[in-house]
């Protein structure tokens, strides 16, 4: 089995990858070749060949584990004794988890609103500026890199050196404080505002997404509406308030809800910047800690279920708004 599962040397890894891809191509090729006889193969066999592999994977990897996890959330650490709602009671009453829930709420309130606001301002401004392409690319760039990379970039901005003579700050934010005559701060350690400094990172990432979508929506506002408003004497802020914002309302809602879903599941930033210490943990990070570090499977499952339940209404609203904005068009 070594050629199949081995991961010791670089060659072995590359060969393993090539074998996996080849295997996949051959299996799918054989299946498709077998059903490629229009009149002799019953239709259900053809259907099974096309949707079967995908549905099998989904049943094995999403549906079945989902049910197992929901069941596990009513069991104890080891998954052997039924404990009813105890895990959920812990998650909603224990002081440590109340901080987690509070942080998650702050994230979900702040990130979508701030990122959408910045994105909207930027979309409006950039529409009338020179260097439009370059400016857009620079703001969108954080969206391309990993959240791990983004976290390290910002960790460096927040870097703290003790306030002693002869020690220079190397983090930009603390240097700015020093220039202003304020003593440097431990941004990532001082509670509770450290959560805000983590939130800044996700806002920085998501603004580019909001800007791109909203800029497209603004461009799609019909010229005659804008022209008519201008003839009526609307300019600047009035135009923004009475024409731009109402016209792109559906896009605004889609952006807000989409970012909210991303925010609810945020994990990488907290993991990389603080590891969830210093009172910065959120539900997705606590799920990882409980499931894979504390080996408390029951509580971990309960946190995953809480995440699931929190996502449902946002997704539902998101899809409804997408449908509505379709109808408008």
């Amino acid at each position: 089995m070594d050629w199949f599962l081995g991961t010791d040397t670089a060659t072995q890894k590359l060969v393993g990858m090539a074998v996996a891809i080849l295997l996949f191509v051959v299996v799918m090729g054989v299946i498709l070749l077998a059903v490629d006889r229009p009149r002799r193969v019953p239709r259900w066999v053809v259907v099974a060949a096309f949707v079967g592999p995908a549905l099998l994977l989904l049943a094995f990897g999403l549906v079945y584990p989902g049910i197992v996890t929901i069941r596990a959330s009513f069991y104890d650490k080891a998954g052997s004794t039924f404990v009813g709602l105890d895990n959920f009671v812990t998650a909603f009453t224990n002081e440590q988890f109340l901080i987690v829930l509070r942080n998650t709420a702050v994230w979900v309130l702040l990130v979508p609103v701030a990122a959408t606001a910045f994105g909207l301002i930027y979309a409006v401004v950039v529409d009338k500026s020179r260097w439009e392409k370059l400016a857009k690319a620079l703001v969108f760039l954080p969206m391309a890199i990993s959240m791990v990379g983004a976290s390290i970039i910002w960790k460096f901005v927040y870097e703290f050196r003790p306030d002693q003579p002869g020690v220079n700050q190397i983090g930009l934010l603390n240097q700015l404080l020093v220039w202003l005559g304020i003593p440097p701060q431990q941004f990532l350690i001082t509670q509770p505002q450290n959560t805000i400094f983590l939130i800044v990172v996700l806002i920085w990432i998501q603004t580019g997404f909001a800007m791109t979508l909203l800029a497209a929506a603004i461009r799609a506002i019909p010229d005659d509406i804008v022209e008519a408003a201008r003839l009526d004497g609307l300019t600047g802020l009035g135009m923004f308030r009475y024409i731009t914002v109402p016209s792109i309302r559906p896009a605004l809602v889609v952006v807000l809800t989409t970012i909210a879903i991303t925010t609810l599941k945020v994990f990488d930033i907290v993991r990389t910047m603080t590891g969830g210490q210093f009172g910065t943990s959120v539900v997705a990070n606590e799920f990882y800690t409980q499931s894979f570090r504390q080996n408390n499977a029951g509580l971990g499952a309960a946190l995953a279920v809480i995440l699931f339940v929190l996502v449902i209404p946002i997704v539902w609203y998101n899809i409804r708004q997408m449908r509505l904005s379709e109808d408008v068009r």
């Binding site: 401004v125 009338k128 260097w131 400016a135 760039l141 954080p142 901005v157 930009l172």
Partner: peptide, 28 residues
């Protein structure tokens, strides 16, 4: 038309924001 409407203030704000967004990455 857009070029005609291109507003120096808007260009300025756009530029400032773009630079602000790039500084953290540039620093690292």
């Amino acid at each position: 038309a857009r070029k005609r409407l291109s507003n120096p203030w808007a260009s300025g704000i756009a530029l400032v924001l773009a630079v602000l967004w790039t500084i953290p990455t540039l620093g690292l």
